[in-house]
Amino acid sequence: MSEGLTRNAARNIFYGGSTIFFLIFAGLTIHTHIYMSTTSTNSEELDEAVIAGKEVWEEHSCINCHTIMGEGAYFGPELSNVWHRYGGRENPEAARAGIKGWMKAQPIEAPGRRQMPQFNLNEQELDHLVDFFKWVDGIDTHDWPPHKSG
């Protein structure tokens, strides 16, 4: 610690510097917000069904077992690319049926396997959830995750 630095000088550097860094941070975040609307996500496909699917996702707090774009709990598999994992990019009908069938089959009572609860979603809720997964799969994440396995 240099003896030349006084407490008041340190304080002024703290306030001035923090303000500048905050302004840069806020500016870049706002730019990113706009970039997400215009470039990296499909804003025009963000319809009622996808929004309803996000609500299903939240109502059952899926994020407290699964990750989505790498964020959440690490108990269950990554779901931002579950649409891709089920082959949705090539065969959307089969992927939709596959994901819905998986949800309906829970809990799989295989001994020693982690249990996913049965959430008793109706057909419409299941479809919305799949619409949400399909939409999320379209986000440009700089090729994350590295593999289809999530």
Binding site: S18, I24, F25, H31, S40, M69, I139, T141
Partner: peptide, 15 residues
Amino acid sequence: LLGTGHHYYWLGTPG
């Protein structure tokens, strides 16, 4: 503050 960037790598954010 700008270190928040380490959460913004893979979220549909600019490079």
